[in-house]
Every structure is written in structure tokens, then in C-alpha cells.
Nucleic acid binder design. Structure first.
Length: 575
RNA sequence: GCGCCAGUGGCUCAACGGAUAGAGCAUCGGACUUCUAAUCCGACGGUUGCAGGUUCGAUUCCUGCCUGGCGCACCA
């Protein structure tokens, strides 16, 4: 049982017996609702229950607090109990409670802080990035890549069953325009006088693709029929862009269970139906589809949208929205109960109609759209849009190459997703105190260094060579039954106290889709460690104390590594 | 005009409705003969955009206003 629950039970029991004993006149038993005071001088945990029921009980809150404290059952958790301020009940826990946390960490290792699946959540589809395959990913996509990945990691650790998906918009006229753009560049490179039509893709990468085709096939496509050439080039360019995105994201540490093609939504199966026809039929059956002005409409206003939306245009073409209708329907068909989409804030106008379609299928609330604010790039405080090298929009790939994966991820995650990010490339590249990612990683590396120092030389060397994990090394050095009773220094207790909040933090970060909180936790834990490092020595203390501190150190290492891992950031063993 | 997001020290950000609003950076002053100084300690710095309301208690919730970003297609 979590410490919070145990304390709540204690206080709740006290309340109950005070009421039953006639000392408190309350119609119903209020909840203890323990919280962690920001200032540890107010104890490790506090209850505000006395404040909240003062009015009903018609008593002074401090008086109520005293009654509750008097009724607190005997226990070995609380070492000190204080009534403070207006009527706060502040509890200080016995060191043994915190020592138990350290033991729990070393026992559970990578599973420390792992949660149970929240009620009502069974199978979550998390869709993110979903960049168009008509060009390279830009910096904003990097934010979604980071956020989605961290969200998936955090939610999994909190017990959710998460399936990560990338939606490829490979259907529709934009793809033909892409193919045409490549074809024009191809002809131009071969000396033909062809103008690039308006609305074309004009980026340098289009020319590169065309050059690639020339390198492979020469001028054989010049004589091909225009339509055929466009279609062929479209497919070549598409597959190149897709490989590009896959490689960039894989290098960034992302993994998608599924790369879902929009085209597949239009392909009929053996029974002659496709997701498009099935989703439309389902809506029609429920009475939310109608024809007007030659077009086919979804009655999204029935669910709060500001206007109805077209699914099939007057000219018979399907809208982009139709694809999304089919796509979400397909997700439901594939068995997902909860659909989470991460979108840029510039798409927020699109949310209502998508929520409406889920409601039309009697699955209101099944769709959750996480909107993220955009990324502004800076270099030494100056706004940058264009890359110096290409003269075009800075791509995500360029950003990672210049800044590095860890610093990019950490910075992208260090703000709540509904805050815009001002990403300064030069600031992100700095390897000093102003860059928090190194502060956290350094704490981890420092611990590893101490562990290596007390280890046999060959084992220490093996961890540096990568042939032995730190976990394995720690297991050699640290006895399972190490006595932790000597860990009573303030900085030792602070470390364990910080770690004791980890599982609750993971649960909250998952619930609120806010992995950025892990960055604050990691910095907090790293800071607490650095303090410990300066006040407490490990090596050279008496055998019992050294053993206990090594144990604590390794617990800290595990939690630091886990926090970084949940953010998708590496935990280096030396720096 | 309507809608979404946000406004907290010079800068970047925190704070389940709780206590004296916390960190980091920057600035200034200290600490390496000791397990990594990518570290630590200290100082300076605030009318939480404005005005009301709810509450024992509001940065947090409600209303109005101001400022900034984004969006309001038979485009994708």
C-alpha cells in the first residue's frame, strides 16, 4: 500500500472514532486528503481536513485538529505530529518508512513506480507526428515526436496499454501535386523549359529526388505520358520521403507499432466494403448523413459542431474529413477503446467535428485530442526560420544533427505542451549549468563513478566497455539485506523522500498527459543527490555506513535512470 | 465578430483550492590536498495582466476587460 493511503487510513480512522465518540459533530466523515507540503519544515505529509470541516462542526480548526491528533491510532509510520498554522495537521514520518522506499526501489528496479491500469482504460491508440509524406519533417514535428514517445512511455509505466501509430496522408490531390512537382524538376534538370505550376512543392528536396531519378533512369521518363510519369514519380518520391521519416524518427528513438496508410481506407476487402463505406454506412444508419447541394454531409451540428461537414463533394471526390471519419472508425474496428491524437494547436478548429463523429457512433468521449502549442526556433536570441545551409525551413533532422537527441528531447519536454516553446539552438547546444539535461545526466554519471570505484577493477572496466550493466555491477556490490537504519542524515532522508513520490508522479503525469513533469522530478532528484554528494561521503566510511549509502546511491541511480528513460533521454554512466 | 491556448522576479519555468508564491539561468559573493567543480553554499530579485465574485483560504474556480499566439473551406 502506498504511504499516502496508509496515512489517509490513519487520519480517517481518527476522524471516525472522534465522531463516534461524540467529540466531533459531523454528519458524515470527511476525507483526510493527505498532501505533501511544499516546505518540508511543515512535515512530510499534511492533512487540511480540520480546516475544511470547521464550518460544519462549528469549531475552531485548530481545536478540531487537536481532537483528530488525539484519536490517531498507534502506528509505526508517524514519528512526529504537529498542529500548525490555521489548523494543518503535519505529520513527520519515521526514517524507517523512507528507508523502506529505498529498499523498494532496489527490489523492484526497473519496475519501481509501475502503476495499475486505471479503471475504464483498456486499449489506447496514440497517434502522433503523422507528418505529410510530401516533404521533410519540420521542427514542430519534433515536438510531437518527443511528446508522443514520452507520453507512451509514461502511460505504459503507469499501467496503460498503449499502441503508437503514425498516420500517413498518402491519399488525395496533394500526392499528385507532389508527383507533378518532381516531374517538373526532372524535366527542368534535363534542360526542358517547363514552369513550376502554382501550389507546387518548391523545396530543394524535390529537386534532389528528381536528380536521383535521373541518376538511376536517365532521361527515359521524358517521353512517357504525363499522367504515367506523374504517377511513377509520385510513388518514388513518396517512398523516399517515408523512408526519410522512418529513419529520422528511428534515430530519434521513436517506435511506432503501425504506420497507417490513408490509402488503405479506400481499399475494399473481400466483402466489397472498405472503412470508408462502412463508416459512412454506419453514420447513415444512425441518421446523421444527408445530401444537399449535390454533396454528402455529416450532421456534426447534432453534437455541438458549429456547422455540418462535407464528406463527399459535389464533384464526387471525398474530402480529407471523410478519410478521418473512416480512419477513426477503423481504429474502433481494430478494438481500441480510447483514441488519443496529438495535434498542433493550428488544428484545433478540427477537433469538434472529430469528436462529433465518435459521438455519432455512440462512443462519445472515446476521442481525446491533445493540442500542443508550436515551436519557435531561435539562435542566440534571434528568431530563425531558415536553415543557413539550405536556405529553407529548418528540418527536424538538421535540428537533431546539430543539437543532439538528448538535449533536443529534454528541451522539447521541459514545458507543458500547451505552452509554446522558444527553442534556442545555441542554448540547447551549451554543455554547462544552463542546460538542465546535463545536470540530471551528471548526477547519474557521478553515482556510476562511485559504484565503479568500489568495484573490482575488471568489473568497473566491463561497465565502461559496455559488456556489463550498472545493474549487474550493483548487484555484485550491494547485499540485498543491507541494514539501512544508519540512513538518517537530512540529505539522505531528502533523497528517499523525493523518490517516495515517484509512483504518484508517474500516475499523475500519465493521467494528465504531461510527461514534462518528469523533467522537474528528475531535476529535483538530481539536485537532492548533488547536495547529498557534497555533505555525505560514501567511500571510506565505516563498513556499515558505506554499505547503507551505497544502497541508497544505487536506488537513486535506478530512479534517475528510470526518469530519464521515461523521457526518452539516455542515462550515461560517465561524462 | 466567434472559438481554442496562454499572461507569475531581468530571462526560462513550477506550484491535487492550502501555510511566508518556489526552482533554474543571469548578476554579485563564497567553496576543490577528500568518491567527477557539467557540482555545492549564500545574496539580490514578486501588487501572480487588470477589475470584480465564490471560499475559512484563490496563481489555481466563475464573470468581464486588456495583451499575445493560433484557428474559423465542398484545402489537404
Amino acid at each position: 500500500m502506498e504511504i499516502r493511503e496508509q496515512l489517509e487510513n490513519l487520519v480517517n480512522d481518527a476522524l471516525k472514532s472522534a465522531i463516534e465518540g461524540g467529540k466531533l459533530a459531523l454528519a458524515e466523515v470527511p476525507q483526510a486528503a493527505m498532501e505533501r507540503p511544499r516546505d518540508t519544515s511543515n512535515g512530510d505529509w499534511a492533512s487540511t481536513v480540520a480546516l475544511r470541516c470547521a464550518k460544519q462542526a462549528k469549531m475552531n480548526p485548530r481545536q478540531i485538529a487537536q481532537i483528530i491528533v488525539d484519536e490517531l491510532p498507534e502506528n509505526d509510520l508517524v514519528s512526529q505530529c504537529e498542529i500548525a498554522g490555521a489548523g494543518f495537521i503535519n505529520l513527520t514520518l519515521a526514517p524507517a518508512v523512507f528507508q523502506g522506499v529505498a529498499r523498494c526501489v532496489r527490489t523492484e528496479k526497473d519496475n519501481f513506480g509501475k502503476g495499475e491500469i486505471p479503471a475504464g482504460e483498456s486499449y489506447v491508440n496514440l497517434e502522433y507526428v503523422s507528418a505529410n509524406p510530401t516533404g521533410p519533417m519540420h521542427v514542430g514535428h519534433g515536438r510531437w515526436a518527443t511528446l508522443g514517445d514520452a507520453m507512451a512511455r509514461v502511460m505504459r509505466h503507469a499501467g496503460y496499454n498503449v499502441y503508437e501509430e503514425f498516420y500517413i496522408n498518402d491519399h488525395g490531390t496533394q500526392m499528385d501535386i507532389f508527383g507533378t512537382s518532381v516531374a517538373v524538376r526532372y524535366l527542368q534538370l534535363l534542360g526542358h523549359d517547363v514552369a513550376l505550376p502554382e501550389n507546387s512543392y518548391g523545396g530543394g528536396y524535390v529537386k534532389d529526388i528528381a536528380q536521383g531519378i535521373i541518376d538511376r533512369d536517365g532521361d527515359t521518363w521524358v517521353s512517357a505520358p504525363e499522367e504515367e510519369r506523374m504517377a511513377a514519380f509520385r510513388e518514388i518520391a513518396y517512398s523516399e520521403m517515408l523512408q526519410n521519416m522512418e529513419a529520422t524518427l528511428a534515430g530519434f528513438g521513436n517506435h511506432f507499432e503501425c504506420w497507417f496508410s490513408e490509402r488503405s481506407l479506400y481499399v475494399a476487402g473481400p466483402d466489397g466494403t472498405s472503412p470508408v463505406t462502412r463508416s459512412l454506412a454506419s453514420m447513415r444508419e444512425k441518421g446523421f448523413i444527408y445530401e444537399e447541394d449535390g454533396a454528402t454531409w455529416f450532421k456534426s451540428t447534432a453534437f455541438g459542431d458549429e456547422k455540418d461537414r462535407v464528406c463527399i463533394k459535389e464533384n464526387g471526390e471525398y474530402t480529407y474529413f471523410m478519410s478521418d471519419v473512416a480512419y477513426h472508425y477503423d481504429k474502433l474496428e481494430r478494438g481500441f477503446d480510447h483514441l488519443i491524437n496529438i495535434w498542433g494547436a493550428d488544428h484545433h478548429g478540427y477537433v469538434k467535428r472529430c469528436e462529433a463523429m465518435l459521438a455519432a457512433w455512440d462512443r462519445p468521449g472515446a476521442l481525446e485530442v491533445v493540442l500542443g502549442q508550436l515551436v519557435n526556433l531561435y539562435r542566440d536570441g534571434e528568431a530563425v526560420r531558415m536553415s543557413k545551409r539550405t536556405g529553407e525551413m529548418v528540418t527536424f533532422k538538421e535540428l537533431i544533427e546539430e543539437v543532439g537527441v538528448d538535449a533536443t528531447r529534454y528541451l522539447m519536454l521541459s514545458r507543458s505542451s500547451d505552452q509554446p516553446i522558444d527553442f534556442d539552438i545555441e542554448a540547447a547546444k551549451k554543455k554547462d549549468a544552463s542546460n538542465p539535461v546535463y545536470y540530471v545526466q551528471y548526477a547519474h554519471a557521478r553515482i556510476c563513478s562511485i559504484l565503479r570505484k568500489v568495484a573490482p577493477a575488471d568489473a568497473a572496466a566491463a561497465t565502461l566497455a559496455g559488456t556489463m550493466t550498472m545493474d549487474a555491477l550493483a548487484d555484485q556490490l550491494i547485499a540485498v539485506d543491507t541494514d539501512l537504519a544508519r540512513l538518517t542524515e537530512p540529505s539522505e532522508l531528502a533523497l528517499m523522500r523525493t523518490m517516495s513520490g515517484f509512483s504518484e508522479l508517474v500516475a499523475a503525469a500519465a493521467r494528465d498527459r504531461a510527461p514534462f513533469r518528469l523533467t522537474h522530478f528528475a531535476q529535483d532528484l538530481a539536485g537532492t543527490f548533488h547536495q547529498f554528494y557534497t555533505t555525505c561521503h560514501v567511500i571510506g566510511e565505516d563498513a556499515e555506513l558505506q554499505a547503507a549509502r551505497l544502497y541508497l546511491l544505487d536506488a537513486t541511480r535506478i530512479v534517475l535512470a528510470k526518469s530519464l528513460n521515461l523521457l526518452g533521454v539516455s542515462a550515461p554512466t560517465e561524462m
